[in-house]
Amino acid sequence: MYAFTYHRPTSLADAAKLAGAHSDGKVIAGGMTLLPTMKQRLAAPSDIIDLSRLDDLRGIEVKDNVVTIKALTRHVTVANSAEVKKAIPALAELAGMIGDPAVRNKGTIGGSVANNDPAADYPSACLALNATIHTNQRAIKADDFFVGLFETALGEGELITAISFPVPQKANYQKFRNPASRYAIVGTFVAKFADGVRVSVTGAGSSGVFRVADFEKALSANFASSALDGKSVAASGLNSDIHADAAYRAHLITVMAKRAVDAAK
C-alpha cells in the first residue's frame, strides 16, 4: 500500500469539503473494496477520508411505499432488517448473498453502489427497482447513474447519502456466483411494478450492469417464466473469462431470469 494522509471528519459537510479539496483522495466506508485495491497497489489515493463517524448516514426507513437506505448502512443490517424483508424481500436476500459474513459486517450499500463493480449485486437492484441515488448535491435516477465499468455519474467531491427503492408488487434476485470470489458470474434482478416489469443483469455485461428491454416487454405482457422461452441476450457485449465465456453467460441470463420470475414474491 502507498502512503496517504488520513482524515476522520465528523460531519457530512466536512467530509464533502475534504473530498472536494483532495481530488486524488478517496472516501472510505467499509473498506471492503478500497483496501484490497490499495493493498494490490491498484489504487494510490493521496488522502483517505474515513466516513465511519458519520452516524447520520446509517439507517433504514420505509415510508409511502419507498424503502430508503442510508449510504453507510452495512450489508448485514439490510439482510436482517425486518422492514426490508417485509417491503422488498428480494433486496434483503440480495444483501445476504454478498461475500461472506465478515464482508457483510463491514461493507456498505453506498460503497457498493459508488464502486459500480461490474459483478457487484446492489447495482442490479438499483436498476431493476428504479431506485434513486441521493447525494450531498442532488438526486440521480439509477438509469442515469451507472455509466460504465467502475464508472458512475458521481462528480468530484460528491458523496452518496442514501438510496431509495420504490416497493414493487413482486421481485426476486437470482445469483450464479463464482464460488471463489463470491461475486456474480451472472445475477438477474426481476421487479414487477403496476406499470410494467424491469429486468437487470449484473456480472455479465462488458460495460457493467444493464437492463434487458426484450425480457421486460415479454414479462410486462405476461409475468410467467414461459414468456422468456426462446429469448436470449446476444453474447456479443458480454464478458468472457476463465470462469465463463460470453455464450455461457448469455445462456445463464435467460436461466436466471426465469428462475427469478418463478421465485418472485
Binding site: 488520513y6 472510505i28 483496501l35 483517505i48 474515513d50 465478515a102 459486517n105 463491514k106
Partner: peptide
C-alpha cells in the same frame, strides 16, 4: 462484529 483485520485500517478502530 467479526471482521477481517487484514482489510481494516487500525486508525478506523479508534
Amino acid at each position: 462484529d467479526a471482521v477481517k483485520s487484514c482489510t481494516t485500517l487500525a486508525l478506523t478502530c479508534e
